[in-house]
Simulated assay, not measured.
Amino acid sequence: MKLYHSPTSPFARKVRILIREKGAANRVSEELISTMEDPAALHAANPLGKIPALVMNDGTSYFDSPLICEYLDVALEGPTFIPASNIERWRVQRLHALADGIMDASVSLTFERMRPEAQRSEMWMGRWRRAIERGIAVLEAEVTDLDGALDLGGIATGAALGYLDFRHAGLDWQSKAPELAGWWKDFAKRPSLVETAPPA
């Protein structure tokens, strides 16, 4: 299997963390790719031209990080990160969706800031910042859900918080969510997080 990714993408990082937590880094090759260059190899793997994209040995591909994570959780040996039972499954997937939403808003904010200043939309930037703040507030209120055995909700939360620190340190989320910040401080030390950290 081959995973197309960027070292700065939080969605790709989520997948890469899961692979390492599965103990399967030697089963999935990781290939750096730039979506800004619009490469043909990525289009063949994902017609939407987005990362991450996972390509099987027979050429079959999976795209969209939740789908890739679910596939790998079943296909790879090792611990399971998406529970089978409905109650626990929906709890984990709800947390996963919240973390992905924070990533969506954060990445949108990043791209908007890359535009020339005269073309930036303060209205959209404000909406994305507020979405991030509300998401962080929910994570802070429900931080105990991150305790216990690691699951995909925790993996996604770590990828989201890592991206905020990487691209949006000025939002100062840690001072507004001290319990979550304490969880993140410990979680970020896991080898899977250290190995997938974006470039300094």
Rank of each mutant, 00 (worst) to 15 (best):
Ala53Glu: 07
Ala53Arg: 07
Leu54Ala: 01
Met56Thr: 02
Met56Leu: 11
Met56Asp: 02
Met56Ser: 01
Asp58Lys: 13
Asp58Leu: 12
Gly59Ser: 02
Thr60Glu: 13
Thr60His: 13
Tyr62Arg: 05
Tyr62Asp: 01
Phe63Ala: 14
Ser65His: 07
Ser65Asp: 07
Pro66Ile: 00
Leu67Met: 09
Leu67Arg: 08
Ile68Pro: 00
Ile68Tyr: 03
Cys69Thr: 13
Cys69Ile: 13
Cys69Tyr: 07
Glu70Phe: 00
Tyr71Gln: 00
Val74Arg: 15
Ala75His: 08
Glu77Pro: 13
Glu77Leu: 09
Gly78Glu: 02
Gly78Asp: 03
Pro79Gly: 06
Pro79Glu: 08
Ile82Val: 15
Ala84Phe: 08
Ala84Ile: 10
Asn86Val: 14
Glu88Asn: 03
Glu88Leu: 02
Trp90Cys: 02
Trp90His: 05
Arg91Trp: 01
Val92Lys: 11
Gln93Glu: 12
Arg94Lys: 15
Leu95Gly: 07
Leu95Phe: 05
Leu98His: 09
Leu98Gly: 09
Ala99Leu: 06
Gly101Glu: 03
Gly101Leu: 01
Ile102Asn: 01
Ile102Lys: 03
Met103Phe: 06
Met103Glu: 09
Met103Asp: 08
Met103Ile: 14
Val107Thr: 02
Ser108Leu: 14
Ser108Lys: 13
Phe111Ser: 06
Glu112Cys: 05
Glu112Pro: 06
Arg113Ala: 10
Met114Trp: 15
Met114Tyr: 14
Arg115Gly: 03
Gln119Cys: 10
Gln119Met: 15
Arg120Lys: 05
Arg120Asp: 04
Arg120Glu: 04
Ser121Cys: 01
Glu122Gln: 10
Glu122Gly: 12
Met123Val: 15
